[in-house]
């Protein structure tokens, strides 16, 4: 273990760190938006669209991100659609994460108990009002654990971006290993970098889950 090597590599890791954070952030936001829209369309059982969404969810959840990225980055140019690596990463993470987030939201919405829905119907609320005032607020707090698990999962998935040469953390480390042939230092830094992102985040998410649960939940 050579501390000089570690020190010298810090600036490069900071660059990779920024890329990982930035792509995770926009990818997760994209995934949350796609997921929320899909779960709402499925909740209201919009004809045909629901079927298309189900197909999307199954395709996205049951195939690896790596192949999804290869498709976007290497195969799409053949049919005339050339996208930058970063943009492919964003699209890939949104495509993958959208289905996971949609399932998390739907799980929450479907988890709202039938008796709560009956109580809403009994005071004359329409399906839309019921959704807005009862099912969504309660469903969102129910879906929090799954949402935060997905957030962690998606951040880890950005490591796969290294296969299309996006200079995020893993790619940075692998590049450095390739150039200087020192694996211990760079791998250690890589693990620590992920720990710096994920440990505080999972603590924050756990606290948030508890807040949501005790803030507006429980009969």
């Amino acid at each position: 273990m050579d501390t000089n090597i570690i020190q010298a590599a810090i600036p490069k890791f900071i660059e990779g760190f920024k890329v990982t954070i930035w792509l995770s952030l926009i990818g997760i936001i994209g995934a949350l938006i796609v997921g929320l829209i899909c779960s709402l369309l499925q909740y209201f059982k919009v004809p045909i669209v629901s079927k298309i969404i189900s197909a999307y969810i199954e395709l996205s959840r049951n195939t690896p991100l790596l192949i999804q990225l290869f498709f976007l980055y290497y195969a799409f140019p053949v049919i005339g659609l050339k996208l930058s690596a970063t943009f492919c990463g964003f699209i890939g993470l949104t495509f993958l994460g959208g289905s996971y987030m949609s399932e998390a939201f739907s799980g929450g919405f479907n988890g709202v108990s039938n008796t709560q829905i009956d109580a809403g119907k009994a005071i004359g609320m329409s399906r839309r009002q019921l959704a807005r005032y009862v099912v969504f607020p309660q469903g969102l707090s129910l879906s929090m654990p799954a949402l935060s698990a997905n957030i962690i999962f998606l951040i880890k998935e950005t490591s796969i971006f290294s296969v299309i040469a996006i200079p995020e953390l893993t790619n940075t480390a692998l590049d450095l290993i390739g150039i200087y042939y020192r694996s211990n230092e760079y791998l250690l830094m890589l693990v620590i970098a992920y720990a710096i992102i994920l440990i505080p985040l999972s603590i924050v998410l756990t606290i948030l889950e508890r807040r949501v649960r005790y803030g507006s939940f429980g009969n």
């Binding site: 880890k156 490591s159 694996s183």
Partner: peptide, 20 residues
């Protein structure tokens, strides 16, 4: 194992087993 991405796990094993 929850924190370290699988890609990184794979490389850890790939480099550390033979070299260390």
């Amino acid at each position: 194992f929850r924190i370290v991405p699988t890609v990184v796990l794979l490389f850890l094993a790939y480099y550390i087993l033979p070299r260390q």
